[in-house]
Amino acid sequence: MQLSEVVLRPVITEQSMLGIDDRKYTFEVDRRANKTHIKQAVEAMFEGVKVAKVNTINVDGKAKRMGRYTGFSRKYKKAIVTLTEDSNNIELFGEAE
């Protein structure tokens, strides 16, 4: 697995935006990736970023129905990445003005 394939997209929710103040960033990652892969990928993707720790969560799909048909939304893996104090911040929305 390539490092560019590990981190898929940032998770933009109210809870994850509150974590940015504590230097915690939330990403959706490949389900096969482990904590070491995620740390290496984040440090390679963003310049000057040092990762202190990585917490991972496997999120199960929710039960959904459309009329009489039932199914599940897709499963995914979520990683909460905590940065060190001397690390640069990650700019998720481009340059801040």
Rank of each mutant, 00 (worst) to 15 (best):
A52W: 04
V49Q: 02
K53S: 13
K24T: 11
V51P: 00
M45F: 06
A44G: 04
S4F: 11
H37D: 15
H37S: 07
E95I: 14
A33Y: 10
I12E: 09
K35Q: 12
Y25W: 01
T13I: 08
I80E: 10
V59I: 07
L92K: 01
L8H: 12
N34H: 09
R23Y: 03
Q15D: 11
A41Q: 02
S87E: 01
S4C: 10
G61H: 04
V81H: 02
D60W: 07
Y25G: 00
V42D: 03
M66Q: 15
N55R: 09
I80Y: 02
R65F: 14
G61Q: 04
R31H: 02
G48M: 10
G61N: 03
L3Q: 06
A41V: 09
G61E: 01
M45N: 06
S73Y: 14
G67S: 09
D30V: 12
V49T: 05
T82R: 04
P10L: 07
N55Y: 05
K53R: 15
G67A: 08
E95D: 13
D30A: 15
M66T: 15
A44K: 09
Q2D: 14
D22Y: 05
G71P: 04
R68I: 13
K39A: 09
Q40D: 14
E14P: 08
V59R: 00
K35L: 06
T36E: 12
R65W: 13
S4A: 13
V42Y: 07
R68L: 13
E43C: 08
A96S: 15
N88I: 04
R65S: 14
R9P: 00
E43Q: 11
V51E: 03
K24D: 10
N34D: 14
T70G: 15
G19K: 08
K78P: 04
K24P: 06
K77M: 10
K24E: 12
